[in-house]
Amino acid sequence: MNAMSDAGLRVLSYSEAIREAMAIAMEADPTVILMGEDIGVYGGAFQVTLDLVDRFGKDRVMDTPISELGGAGVAVGAALTGLKPIYEFQFSDFAMLAMEQIVNQAAKLRYMLGGEASVPVVFRLPSGSGTGAAAQHSQSIEAWFGHVPGLKVLQPATPEDAKGMLLAALADPDPVMIFEHKLLYKMKGPVPEGSYHTPIGKALVRRAGTDVTIVAGSIMVHRALEAAEKLAAEGINAEVIDLRSIRPIDHETILASVRKTGRLMVVYEGVKAFGVGAEISAMVAESDAFDYLDAPILRLGAADAPVPYNPDLERAAVPQVDTIEAAARRLARREV
């Protein structure tokens, strides 16, 4: 039996929601296959595929050797020719071993072939820090892929979006990368039954406000919402936008909010420099919304360092509720 939310909706965890999306897609479409390291009996490094191998068999839930370049590339080739593979990286960090196939091949094939080819592959990438796994297992590299025309780059913050984005990605004719946050896998939330699509490229206002706009993605949405609640007690009313999609990016939702609040802060887990915040800040600075700004734009990203192992350093390296709260307060009071 499933738990119910306050609104009477069924409640699932983020990983259950992703699993349900995969099962729905596999039931509906025999060309959907799963590939990845230890996604079979082990159930995936984060137990996301869990029992899918029992339900769909080893021919559709394929354990790959530890060969990210090859595995991702095989998924690209299969997508090019009629299958719809979902390739799971054990950690988003290992996508670096497959950069060639993702960036040189998957992203560019349609264009290089003048629109004659399609690569409907989906990459799932467990991401982010907070697990004590140190520098090579904790990165947030989603912005890198934002720089690549031909890719779509998503970041679900809730179980509902995790399911809806995966189903939308599978229906999309182009390569889609979904960065799932490791700390969110156990998070529970209402999830609609059946098939539905979370629109790709649409941000969502998670909390309406008037004083300052906080744009965040993935786990930072939850930290920003928590910070916003604390600020509300002091009379600072923050609007929190869940970016959801890094590429394509939803300009209009952000610009509309900035025109309203006159203050913009971007919060993300990737390294601050050259990150999602740079793109959004520049986009606002280049638009009419610039005239509405009452204060400089503020970016809150990770420290200029690899993710450290020591838990206190690890926490200090990325934005937390208290740092978001303090920064938003300074911005609202124009102390920046």
């Binding site: 004590g132 796994a133 140190a134 520098a135 090579q136 297992h137 690899p306 450290p308 192992y309 020591n310 350093l313």
Partner: peptide, 10 residues
């Protein structure tokens, strides 16, 4: 060995 930056894996 890594001044607390690396942990077991490094």
């Amino acid at each position: 060995y890594c001044h607390g930056r690396g942990g077991s894996m490094h």
